[in-house]
Amino acid sequence: MAKAILVDTSKCIACRGCQVACKQWHGRRAEPTRFQGSYENPLALSAQTWRRVGFIETAGGDGRLRWRFISDACKHCTDASCLAVCPTGALFRRTWGAVDLNQDICNGCRYCVAACPFGIVAFNEESGRVNKCVLCPDRVEAGLEPACVTTCPTDALTFGDRDQLLSQAKRRVAELQAKGEKGAQLYGERELSGLHQLFVLQERPQVYGLPEQPRFAVASVFPSSVTSVLASVVMGVTALVAFRGRGGKGEE
């Protein structure tokens, strides 16, 4: 049964308990930071920060100020670019949907880093390997919820069967829409054949820094291969022309 986390941004109070709980459970360190003019810190996900709360000041359609919060981490995509490109098998799929990471096998090639459409995976300079949210398999498989979910005081994060969460999310979107929140929408149902971290958003995904249409990185392998084969043929023919032509005989 596929599991997932549902992030309901409309219930998030940006307490950042999730951000810290993840660090605590996974023994992640604090990074040196400086206040930059926004409450947000650290400014990006990293090897030490697997979940992070974004603070976004934005004016809605009505011109009224909004302060949107989003607790963001790995989406555990069905079409997981990171997993697809990983040459070593360090990234692997749990039966219930998590894209897990086996540190022992990772060789630090950073291909996953470049491949993830959400900028999730991060290189850890110290270990020479990468890190990211792993959906807490050590907890989930022991019958617990992920650390971040357990901590969330407002149920902005919930964990459970993906199907159930999907209908819960749809109900919530309908509720918000009925309340006049025209921007309310579900993110992650179909994206990349389905994410295992779903989002109820109150604005367009872009407002939260989420790609409107995330790309499965390896989708380009086939077209790239075709063009490469074509180019190879052209170069092969070129070589033939060169080698069999007049000059092929040697110095004139």
Partner: peptide, 21 residues
């Protein structure tokens, strides 16, 4: 949210300092 009062405790906890330095 990230700090408690005079910060005696919270300004000594690196995770909280990281969020509100």
């Amino acid at each position: 949210t990230e700090h408690q009062h005079t910060g005696s405790i919270t300004r000594n906890l690196p995770w909280l300092v990281e969020m509100m330095p």
